[in-house]
Every structure is written in C-alpha cells, then in structure tokens.
C-alpha cells in the first residue's frame, strides 16, 4: 500500500527526471527530499550523512534530508525535530514547497553566475545563501567546491530547470578556450 501511494508522487519537474551531463557539468533533480524549515535554533542544527542544513536568516534554517519511506500529510521528521528543539521552536514541512537540484562540475559556479548577482565565489563549502537566481527566489547551498544544491520553489522548478539547461549551453558543448 505504502509503495503504491509513493508511486503516485510526481516531482515538480514531472517525467522524465532531470539528469543532464556534460564534460564539465552535471545537473539533476534530487526528487522527494525531506525539506524542513526550522525556526529558533541559534546554532547550526546537526544533521546526518547525505543531509545538509542551510542558514536562511537569524535562527532560521532549511534542513535538506533524505526522502521519507512512507507517505504522510507531514513528514514524521517534523515532529522529531519539534521534540528535539523543544518548545518555542517551529518546524514546517516544506518538502513539496521546494525541490532540490544538484549542480556539480567545474562549470557549476560559471553557470550560476549567468543569473545570480551574489558573490558565490566567497560562499564557503558547507554554507548556503538565499537570493535570486534567474528571476526566481532560491536557496543555494555549497556542498563541495564544485557541487551546489539549488532549492527553488516547486512552482518555479520548471522555469529554473529550463533556465539552467539553457544557461549551461556552452558547458554541455564546450567550444574554444574554456573559461572559468
């Protein structure tokens, strides 16, 4: 039953899944991640392997966690975080409100710089920013030197995917001198 219901899920991008690879870039959607907004913790909350946490504002965090195993109106991890953070903290399940793109490869930063005015070079690995990419509000997280997570709102996901694929035209098919 659980599996049948899970099979009904569609990521904001729909089918087929986004997974484009070029010699210097790899763009894909990581569908159905468990995304939670936490309010309250002043220090960065600890998360498990293959999970990330990005600061959204003072005492405000986005947790990017692994997918849940069962369908639910609200991810059970929201309740777990509430219990862990104690009274006064807030947890909102935004797993479907945003989605997750992974953009990796030596050209990742270059592609982002086509549509983002933030000084992303200066964002250290492990840090994230909220801002505008390609006219859409996004959360950007740097998980490695050349490895980024992009969390657009679900309704903007198709726009952003189309924009990223387009912006990366010269990375899918490099020509002439490679730029940085």
């Amino acid at each position: 039953m659980t599996a049948d219901v899970l099979a009904l899920r569609r990521s904001p991008l729909g089918d087929p899944p986004l997974d484009v690879r070029g010699p210097r870039l790899h763009l894909r959607e990581l569908a159905f991640r468990t995304l939670l907004e936490l309010r309250g913790p002043t220090g960065r909350p600890a998360v498990g392997p293959d999970e990330h946490v990005w600061p959204l504002g003072p005492g405000w965090w986005l947790v990017d966690g692994t997918p849940d195993a069962a369908p639910a109106l609200e991810s059970p991890r929201a309740a777990a975080w509430r219990a862990a953070l104690g009274p006064g903290a807030g947890v909102v399940d935004v797993s479907c409100h945003r989605t997750t793109f992974a953009l990796s490869g030596p050209d990742a930063l270059l592609v982002l710089s086509h549509g983002c005015s933030i000084d992303l070079e200066r964002v250290p690995v492990g840090q994230g920013v909220q801002g505008v990419l390609a006219h859409a509000q996004v959360v950007l997280g740097r998980v490695g030197q050349d490895d980024w997570r992009i969390h657009p709102r679900a309704s903007f996901a198709r726009h952003l995917a189309a924009w990223l694929v387009d912006a990366a035209a010269e990375s899918w098919e490099p020509w002439g001198d490679q730029e940085d």
Binding site: R39, D93, S95, C96, A154, S155
Partner: peptide, 10 residues
C-alpha cells in the same frame, strides 16, 4: 513566525 507553504499543497 511565518512560513510560505503555497507550493507545499496541491
């Protein structure tokens, strides 16, 4: 505290 969840729900 406020959180937009417009896209969370169909």
């Amino acid at each position: 505290a406020f959180t937009s969840v417009t896209d969370q729900w169909a």
